[in-house]
Amino acid sequence: MAEDWYMVNLVGVDRPGIVAHVSAALFQAGCNLGEAAMMRLGGNFSIMLMVQGSGGKAGLVRLLEPVAESLGLRLHVDRIEGHLHRHLEPDVRVTVFGADRAGIVARVTGVLAEVGFNILDLQSDVGGTEAEPIYVMTLEGQAPEGIEAVRSALAAVGGDAGIEVEVTPIETLVG
């Protein structure tokens, strides 16, 4: 019988060993792991984890709550309709960088939404110094209207002083 999938989110101060503790608890309880993404954002540990199990949402929370507490993490669990083997293949990569300013993400993603761009992966970092922070964002997705539509839509954003926008095709080789 197919068991339900849940999305488990854990957030808290980062320290070594978190993933090992959490995954061991899940494994010992007979849960399966699906896809996962862990990141350290601003010194915080953050993970999104697909978990498959038979105990329902309440059972999963009961299992993980003590683990999360012992690691100083906050836990959030949702039942999801997702499944494995549903990957979409990105065809365009957009890189944005420049002096950190309010509104970069909203402008770039707003323009992308207008041309129907479907973001499949986004990561951004703030580097530089506290006095002069720089912002770097890379995103990948599908451009149903083609890469030229993305380029011309973003041209105006890139024209702003201090923001560099690079649009490159992702040509996935299948062999």
């Binding site: 083997h85 990957h87 293949e89 992702i170 040509e171 996935t172 080789l173 299948v174 062999g175």
Partner: peptide
């Protein structure tokens, strides 16, 4: 660096 997939490795790139 480039993205690759393979007939022998379905649903992963």
């Amino acid at each position: 660096v480039g993205r690759e997939g393979c007939l022998s490795v379905p649903d992963y790139t």
